[in-house]
Design a protein around this nucleic acid. Structure first.
Lengths: 214, 214
DNA sequence: TCCTTAATCCAACGATCGCTGGATAATCCC
DNA sequence: GGGATTATCCAGCGATCGTTGGATTAAGGA
């Protein structure tokens, strides 16, 4: 690993060091948790010195928060874009509501399968809420309300056979996280596992609505 | 906290110190994780000295394993007893298979609601498999196969409308863990939350079987 | 050219960590 | 009563932790 050049960066240059540190720290935090990761581990993974990590990201707690903010912002962006697409598809009225709901949830599953560290950070956040006091309203609530809102919108046409959508959505989200964890734990035949889980989720979603009339 | 008496314990006396340490350590590990808990924290919570903790439970890693073994053994015992009852109820042939399945899963939900640290330890185990290399086969597999077996047994009468019981059972288990985490996070109206989740689980289980004929 | 700003690293501080050797006290067994 | 055994605590070891002060290098601004 070549040593990074010291000195003031050139004008047009962005600052890749901070992103480098954040990416390395995110991977380590997701795998081992806050206390098992030393700042020297982060520095070594990013190829810089410990003091450089502190220079860019402040204290360890601030670095932790920055990692969560970065990952959750990416998730939120993807989900809100998918939500907008679903909304306009339903507003157009031409599409099938159930099919739209399938597609929306597929985006969620795809995203978490592609970035398993997102699931790891969510689980750590749920396990240790005392570390994330200020993140509650900024990330968790919008995602849940989005899916619930989509569920309600999709249910406008046909009645929704589901008296507790809140519990239903939460259970669905946790099932997805469990799927990602199981994928990370097993060795082979991940493709089949992915297919089977999508099939399960679709059948689950279909069960929320009355069967289509003849 | 009165200092514990040194010296060899009396004959008939059991050894409460080890259990005291294990209980305190389990609560701390469930709340904060392995690395965030110091042996001095465990000792203080148990009202003993650090050396006493080491004397009874050996290494910190051994203490961690002992906590998991203790909690998972309790869970396994409860579940296997409920499984035996469900099996004999089905073998007698008199009862309703769906009702038997409801009761079995209710036992699981009740247990985790009563001991939320069980969920915390399961999630930590899933998040950090490198810490639990030897626990995989001893605890995880039997629970899953038990529920799947019960599902299969309950399905002998009526056909099971579920091509992937493995995925289904896992998703159900994760939904229960998510329910426990949500219960711990919220403040009030836990009774309503419990009722709604049970209702959800029952409807979910019913969806696995074809609707009863008229 | 010279001063300012910014990035990087080195060295080290105080605190805490897991762990242990040894002293002391209480009980059992003979 | 008197060793043997066991439980408990005290004190301290070496290692690692998060954090910081200061030196060095490189670029911008005048």
């Amino acid at each position: 690993m070549p040593r990074r050049r010291p000195g003031r960066p050139r004008r047009g240059t962005e600052r890749p060091t901070r992103d480098l540190v954040l990416a390395a720290a995110t991977a380590l935090f997701a795998e081992r948790g806050f206390d098992a990761v030393g700042l020297r581990d982060v520095a070594a993974a990013a190829g810089v010195d410990v003091a450089t990590v502190a220079h860019h990201t402040g204290t360890k707690a601030q670095l932790y928060d920055a990692c969560f903010a970065r990952v959750f912002a990416a998730e939120r962006e993807v989900l809100e874009a998918a939500g907008e697409r679903a909304r306009s598809a339903l507003a157009a009225g031409g599409g099938d509501a159930l099919r739209t709901l399938h597609d929306l949830v597929d985006v969620f599953v795809d995203f978490l399968e592609d970035r398993p560290e997102t699931t790891a950070l969510w689980l750590r956040r749920w396990l240790e809420p005392h570390r994330h006091a200020d993140l509650d309203e900024r990330y968790a609530a919008p995602l849940y309300t989005l899916v619930e809102e989509l569920l309600a919108t999709a249910a406008e046409g046909g009645a929704l056979v589901e008296p507790t959508p809140h519990v239903t959505v939460r259970s669905l989200v946790w099932a997805v996280h469990g799927h990602v964890v199981a994928l990370a734990a097993q060795n082979g035949s991940a493709a089949r596992e992915r297919r089977e889980f999508r099939s399960f989720v679709h059948r689950f979603l279909d069960g929320l609505y009355p069967p289509a009339g003849p």
